[in-house]
C-alpha cells in the first residue's frame, strides 16, 4: 500500500493540452491527473501515441514555449506551477527534476566533450561551482555509475563511447545534482535489450541509494512489473487505470489494461508487444484501486 503521508514531489492536476491553431487545435491530453511521492517509483504505460511523452515533456517545461501548444491544468513541483512552462520554469524548477532520454548518444552534444557538458549540468545546480570542483564531482559521479575510467570518459566525445556508456553518463548527469524526481522516457530503448536491462538495473540501484523518485515511461510491462511501485495506465490521452503494481497485475479491472497484460507473453520474443485491438470498452471511465486516490492537499 503506498505511503500517503508523504507530500508529493510532482502532482499533475487535470492537465489538458492541445496542439495546433486556436481554431483547429487537436486535444492530445484530456485531463490527466497523477502524482509521485518522495522515493516512489511510478510507471506510466500505454500504447504508442497515447500521450506519455507529451505528459512528461510538459512537466519538464519543454513544450510550452511553442506557439501552437495550448495548456490547461496544473503541474505542481512543491509550490511552483509549471504548467505555463518556459525556460523561466526550467530555471526555477532547478534540479528538483531531471530527465533521461531514449537515445543517450543523441542526447549528448557531439561538438564538445562529456566534461564540458557535465560542467554545464553541475553549474545549473550550483552557479558558482569552480571548474576544478565540477570536474571532481563529475569524476565521482561517473565512478558511482561504474564507469571504469572516469577521466577518460570525461575527455571523450559522446560518439566515441558506446551507447551503454553514454547511458551511464546520462544517469550520472541526471543524478549529479541530487534531484527529487527522475523522469525516464523509455530509457535505452534505442539500445540493445541487454544494455537496456543493465540501464534499468543501474537506475534502480542509484535511485534507491539516493532516495530519488522515478517516473518511468515504458511500453514494456515486464520491465514495469519489476521496477515500479505504482502504475498509471494511459489510453488516448486519458488515465484509464491507476493502482499499485501488485493490484494492477493481479487484478486488472479496466478492459484496456487487461488487453495490455494479455499482450505480455509475446514480449519474450524480444520485439515490441503486439498492441491490443482497439475496442469501445477501452473508453470506459477511470478505475482507481484502493489507497491510490489523488492527494487532497492544496499545492498552490
Amino acid at each position: 500500500m503506498p505511503d500517503n503521508t508523504q507530500k508529493p514531489v510532482l502532482a499533475i492536476r487535470d492537465l489538458r493540452v492541445a496542439f495546433g491553431d486556436r481554431r483547429h487545435a487537436t486535444e492530445v491530453l484530456h485531463g490527466i491527473s497523477m502524482h509521485i511521492r518522495a522515493g516512489e517509483k511510478v510507471a506510466l504505460v500505454g500504447e504508442s501515441g497515447s500521450g506519455k511523452s507529451v505528459t512528461v515533456r510538459l512537466a519538464m517545461g519543454l513544450l510550452q514555449d511553442q506557439k501552437r501548444t495550448h495548456v490547461a491544468g496544473h503541474i505542481w513541483f512543491d509550490g511552483i506551477d509549471a504548467a505555463k512552462g518556459g525556460p523561466e520554469v526550467a530555471r526555477r524548477r532547478g534540479n528538483r527534476v531531471a530527465m533521461i532520454f531514449q537515445d543517450p548518444t543523441s542526447a549528448l552534444n557531439p561538438t564538445f566533450k562529456i566534461r564540458g557538458q557535465f560542467r554545464d549540468v553541475l553549474r545549473s545546480g550550483d552557479r558558482s561551482i569552480s571548474k576544478a570542483d565540477a570536474d571532481r564531482r563529475a569524476e565521482a559521479a561517473l565512478a558511482e555509475v561504474s564507469i571504469p575510467d572516469p577521466k577518460r570518459a570525461l575527455d571523450s566525445y559522446a560518439f566515441q563511447l558506446s551507447g551503454g556508456m553514454n547511458q551511464r553518463v546520462m544517469i550520472a548527469m541526471a543524478l549529479a545534482n541530487r534531484p527529487q524526481l527522475l523522469i525516464a522516457d523509455e530509457p535505452g530503448t534505442a539500445l540493445d535489450v541487454t544494455v537496456q536491462a543493465q540501464t534499468l538495473k543501474l537506475m534502480h540501484e542509484m535511485t534507491e541509494r539516493t532516495g530519488t523518485s522515478v517516473l518511468l515511461i515504458s511500453h514494456n510491462l515486464g520491465v514495469v512489473r519489476e521496477f515500479a511501485d505504482r502504475v498509471y495506465v494511459i489510453y488516448r490521452g486519458r488515465i484509464v487505470e491507476h493502482g499499485t503494481t501488485a493490484q494492477l497485475f493481479h487484478d486488472p479491472r479496466h478492459p484496456y489494461t487487461r488487453a495490455l497484460l494479455a499482450a505480455i507473453p509475446k514480449i519474450s520474443g524480444g520485439g515490441l508487444p503486439d498492441l491490443p485491438e482497439r475496442s469501445p470498452d477501452f473508453e470506459n471511465p477511470l478505475i482507481v484501486h484502493e489507497g491510490c486516490g489523488e492527494p487532497t492537499e492544496a499545492f498552490a
Binding site: 519543454l62 525556460p87 534540479n95 532520454f101 542526447a107 549528448l108 552534444n109 564538445f112 564540458g116 554545464d120
Partner: peptide, 22 residues
C-alpha cells in the same frame, strides 16, 4: 530539434548558453 538541445533546456541551462553551445 535534436535531443541534446532538449536536454539542455530540461536542465534549465541559460538561454545564451543553449543558443551558442548547443
Amino acid at each position: 530539434e535534436r535531443p541534446y538541445v532538449e536536454m539542455a533546456r530540461a536542465y534549465g541551462f541559460p538561454g545564451r548558453r543553449i543558443a551558442m553551445r548547443y
